[in-house]
Design a protein around this nucleic acid. Structure first.
Length: 461
RNA sequence: GCCGCCAUCGUCUAGUGGCCCAGGACGGAACGUUCUCAACGUUCAGAUCGCGGGUUCGACUCCCGCUGGCGGUACCA
């Protein structure tokens, strides 16, 4: 049996960093078992649908280094891979369920449903459920309403007093009473399926063997199990993943603490490989002390049995930043140059520095000093400074000393600066501030060498 | 409310009955190196394993209860 996993994004908004984690796990699992990773677009919510969202999602998945074997843009034998193009299929299967009495037509208006729920709540029932009002309709009555073009939905017919159970590779056996399951709408009045119908039909038709998704789906999995049983289909292997939360908080990631969208992390200068490495450890751990992982190593070591059985895992931004710094430090200098050039492609000032004669030398110096690509800018771009009265004497001295230097080399500059420090009884960071406008940064002599002497002298007037 | 799930240093976690008076990483502190800041090296602090009961010769590990958190409870996914 070929392993087939999938990620099924819904084009209703920004692609979250947590979604990349889910892509990573699904992708790695398929790779590990020499299977296929599929992307399917679940665009069944026409109210929240956002034009262009799908392409943004696909682009960001690519930018994080992932590809898919089947799905939009690449096609495949199980297409179409957009649910909006599969409406006839869902209708066919919904009707099959109706024929099997596992589902039924419902003509209730939203108003009646609201009234029904209000009445239930008035009676103290907080877990409101559809009252199966339309289940009582005779076949003739249904036929008549259909003839009259009365809008309808198709609902799942949940049989009471049954125990629905399924096995999850992470959470073990889960059991739920069918009494706690609502007669879920399967096919909406606009002809689109709800998630529950769409996911079951498509996962089956696309021969998905392992369903890996956030554990917020655990409560609705029994509905899917009922559907699989009604169709007489075999269940996929369920693997529910812990969701992400903000470090120190109890709730999910929030913009208040930094980026949340996958795209934003790239914009902030986080390397995809660093972020992906960080994501690997969010919900999984090899059981060893190894934390730095290439995707190849991850594919090799990834084991479903090691996925964390917990409700939420913290997204520690500080640790991400550390890991990003680690990656920047360990990447080949040429590659780092390339990454910086791409990152600063619209920043003339930084780009000029990068492409100057000393560009690479500066990057080498900056390599251990930046945690994100974004921090490179403040390392190499000086801020003009206004000298105070007490500064002028030192500045003048520095200038004179520099002017006397025959060669503009870091060793000579350092020696000159040492003399200044001694003479005025000041620390290097004072000189640092006078020359760059910043308190900290790249090693001064080397940094100065990378800038033409004339320019430095000009700054000192 | 009801249903389901979860619970180890500040944070992420290792740990599946004795190897644990709980190990690693991030963060913090100190020292070394040093032209500032980093990086690097060495060291330190930091968890009576949510609480209370059991079971057992022995529990972080098994069972029950409580508490807390999360999720679901839509013609959203």
């Amino acid at each position: 049996m070929t392993v087939r996993t999938r990620m099924a994004p819904s084009p209703t908004g920004e692609y979250h960093i947590g979604h990349i984690r889910t892509v990573l796990y699904n992708w790695a699992f398929a790779k590990k078992h020499e299977g296929k990773f599929i992307i399917r677009i679940e665009d069944t919510d026409r109210v929240r649908y956002i034009e262009g969202a799908m392409d943004k999602i696909l682009d960001i998945i690519i930018d994080y280094g992932f590809t898919w074997d089947e799905g939009p843009r690449v096609g495949g034998a199980y297409g179409p891979y957009m649910q909006s193009e599969r409406l006839e299929i869902y209708k066919k299967y919904a009707l099959e369920l109706v024929a099997k009495k596992a589902a039924y037509y419902c003509f209730c208006t939203v108003e009646r449903l609201e009234k029904m729920r209000d009445e239930q709540r008035a009676k103290g029932i907080t877990a409101t459920k559809y009252d199966k009002h339309c289940l009582m309709l005779t076949p003739e009555a249904v036929e008549k309403k259909l003839q009259e073009n009365i809008p309808y939905v198709i609902r799942l017919n949940v049989i009471p007093d049954k125990t629905i159970s399924f096995h999850d590779e992470v959470f073990g056996d889960v059991q739920v009473s069918s009494n706690d399951i609502d007669d879920q709408v399967l096919l909406k009045s606009d002809g689109f399926p709800t998630y529950h119908l769409g996911v079951v039909v498509d996962d089956h038709l696309m021969e998905i063997t392992h369903v890996m998704r956030g554990n917020d789906w655990i409560p609705s999995t029994p509905k899917h199990v009922i559907l699989y049983n009604a169709f007489g289909w075999e269940l996929p292997v369920y693997i529910h993943l812990p969701n992400l939360k903000e470090k120190g908080e109890t709730k999910k990631l929030s913009k208040r603490f930094g980026p949340v969208a996958a795209r934003e992390f790239l914009d902030e200068g986080y390397l995809p490989e660093a972020t992906v490495n960080f994501l690997m450890l969010l919900g999984w751990n090899p059981g060893t002390d190894k934390e730095i992982y290439t995707t190849e190593e991850f594919v090799r070591d990834f084991d479903v049995k090691k996925i964390h059985k917990t409700d939420l895992v913290s997204f520690d931004r500080q640790k991400l930043t550390w890991m990003n710094g680690y990656y920047i430090q360990h990447v080949q200098i040429k590659q780092l140059m390339k990454k910086l050039e791409v990152f600063y492609k619209d920043d003339k000032e930084v780009l000029t520095i990068l492409q100057s004669q000393n560009g690479e030398a500066l990057v080498l110096l900056a390599q251990t000093r930046m945690k994100t690509l974004k921090e490179f800018r403040e390392l190499v771009v000086s801020i003009p400074i206004a000298f105070t009265d007490s500064d002028t004497l030192i500045v003048k001295d520095i200038k004179q000393t520099f002017e006397k230097l025959s060669a503009w080399k870091s060793e000579d500059i350092l020696e000159a600066l040492r003399g200044i420090l001694k003479k005025h009884g000041i620390k290097m960071n004072t000189v640092y501030r006078l020359l760059t406008g910043r308190d900290v940064g790249l090693p001064l002599p080397e940094y100065l060498e990378s800038i033409p002497k004339e320019e430095i002298l000009k700054r000192l007037t």
